[in-house]
Design a protein around this nucleic acid. Structure first.
Lengths: 355, 355
DNA sequence: TACTTTTATGTACACGCGTACATTTTACGT
DNA sequence: ACGTAAAATGTACGCGTGTACATAAAAGTA
């Protein structure tokens, strides 16, 4: 009779497989459930003899604590949420950009026992971040590639208000004091422009990205600072705007070609635009020997194109790592105080031989 | 007195914020907890009046069901696990490859109410997949970029034995009958070689990837079939092996250069190797006008290099989508029976004008 | 030995939800 | 008006774990 009841119970679990629980281990080891718990959580004083008995019983039964129950009772998911823009539509950054950052996040999270919960948000931002916390789906959140639009601003603002641990990577929202990690694009651009000036260029056009991304502002600031430091007058007519896509660089070729005799170089804010521009200029009969073009990001393509592109390396992997570690520090209480705004150093990569 | 107890309880929750539960909503709406549950799960007959009262109370309290509790009691995590190789070390495929597939997975999973749990496994495979299921961390698993080595074979075999829902993308393990999704590389390669033959090439060298990846076998099969159908004798001395990296293509340039007068074209199994080869050949004074080089994958770089590369498009995004949908169908019982081995069609992309 | 302190283990409950089952209310037919 | 079926709602419990508290065993002390 008892056996039958038992069988019925077991078969209730789909697949017919019995879920081994703490109770089973306790019974086999001849101890209480609490003791099993203690062994698995390494808590309190336990006699070595007892501990081994539990470990042996657990091994025998192939017991693994149910993470669902653990998370539930601990009231934490163990998940680090990562919001990515819906990639297929993204032209903003290359997929390389996200893959690198994500790797950094993944490595750091893994080291600290957190899992990565990946969420794709349409770029319009219809995802209610706050709900993720309310539902306890994530313990902390990293936001990537969000645009500075009212909806997102409101969502992020709500998160900050409730003091949920979040971190932005590669962007900031003016007026919103949030933890963030970025590369030092001001210095990155500064060094690039300085390099151009030192190698004899004085009239340097600048293809910026949309100003609704904070890093566009930063690059512009670096550009201007470098000119200023070398006594070159800033000329607004040399500033152009693309949208980070190769196409937008390509389409600017006509404009650039029109003034190419009045400029020495073009600094594009990312490699894709630089490559598009070079291609466009080529078709218009302007080779890279006539006009220096440099990029930014050190994307994969930068080294394979013709000529290899001088660019600025951005430590994407490290940015992901740092953001994760600081965020988890924040959660554990190891890090307190005002929001941080980390800026990792960039590195100038000189490839073309003609500059 | 009662109030004081209440306050104490609330303050127990870290951060001082009270967690709104079903009980709170029930009390405010003047119904039982079960009724609240019913409203949120859309279960059973409920009077419209009651329903609205619950919805109103929930809104007022900003109630969101605790996903942790839900998952626990439902005994499912709601997570779709995705195993990625530790990207920084990966040369095998480009990051583009994974980003695309991941997007497809993410989109499909999202549509069906599943979250993506991302896990990076070192390529040596020290991750115990089985434990993920035992711990109930994931309900299903998608495996990407695993190598055919004993450890992984054993792990995957154990998963299949216990009938856990898993799906491989872009690979298969001979002898292991697992659900899998891939592109039809046999036809893809066949069509590329046929194209080369039809445009006048007859002696076509083939740079394959390591044969421990099933898609290498497939491409070779397509290559051979195309030759056969056009009465060209297969010549094993025209087969080379790279490791999918640009460098390996570059390093093969010397070898290819040595025989370039005896061949008309080189078919590389991916774009990166093709580009490396082109670069190497260039340095040896062999231009693409002397020797046709084509690639595979239609990676980003394929269209930017010089000359733009003729290649084969692989529907990565769709592969991710399909794998996810079939996997979730399998779980829900909508799909039963033998393991599927889906092969999505590829598409020849002709870019270079000289072939 | 008898008492106290420390160490080791057991007991019991809460976490927030889904849901089987019991109960109450409403609708319907006569 | 009454009985019965259907609809609506409530009651009660279990899911598997962490852990506060109670208890038992061991170690120390006088």
């Amino acid at each position: 009779m008892y056996i039958k009841v038992s069988i019925v119970k077991y078969t209730l679990n789909k697949g017919g497989g019995h879920i081994t629980t703490r109770k089973d281990v306790a019974r086999l080891a001849g101890v209480s459930e609490a003791t099993v718990s203690r062994v698995f959580n390494n808590i309190g004083p336990i006699r070595e003899h007892t501990k081994q008995a539990v470990i042996k019983a657990a091994a025998e039964l192939q017991y693994t604590p149910n993470a669902l129950a653990q998370n539930f009772v601990r009231r934490r998911s163990g998940n680090l949420g990562v919001i990515l823009p819906l990639l297929p539509k993204v032209h903003l950054f290359s997929k390389y950009y996200f893959a690198e950052i994500l790797s950094g996040i993944g490595q750091a999270a893994n080291e600290r026992g957190y899992d990565l919960l990946l969420m794709f948000a349409s770029i319009e931002g219809n995802l209610d971040y706050l709900r993720l916390f309310h539902a306890r789906k994530v313990d902390a959140l990293i936001l990537l590639g969000r645009r500075d639009i009212p909806e997102d601003r409101a969502s992020i603002s709500a998160l900050l208000e409730d003091k949920h641990p979040i971190c932005l990577i590669g962007q900031r929202f003016a007026g919103l004091l949030a933890d963030s990690v970025d590369a030092d694009h001001i210095t990155g651009s500064y060094e690039m422009v300085r390099h151009l000036v030192r190698s004899g260029h004085r009239r340097i056009a600048f293809i910026n990205g949309p100003l609704e991304y904070s890093n566009s502002e930063d690059r512009l600031a670096g550009y201007r600072a470098a000119l200023l430091d070398h006594d070159i007058t800033f000329d607004a007519s040399l500033i152009f705007e693309g949208n980070f896509s190769r196409k937008s660089g390509y389409e600017l070729a006509h404009t650039i070609a029109g003034i190419h005799e009045h400029i020495d170089a073009v600094f594009a804010s990312n490699d894709r635009m630089a490559i598009g521009l070079i291609q466009g200029l080529n078709e218009l009969g302007i080779s890279y020997e006539d006009l220096t073009v440099v990029g930014y990001d050190n994307a994969d393509i930068a080294q394979f194109c013709n000529p290899p592109l001088t660019t600025v390396e951005v430590p994407l992997f490290e940015m992901g790592q740092l953001a994760t570690n600081k965020l988890l520090d924040r959660m554990s209480g190891k890090l307190i105080g005002d929001p941080f705004e980390e800026k990792l150093p960039t590195r100038l990569i000189i490839r073309s031989t003609n500059i």
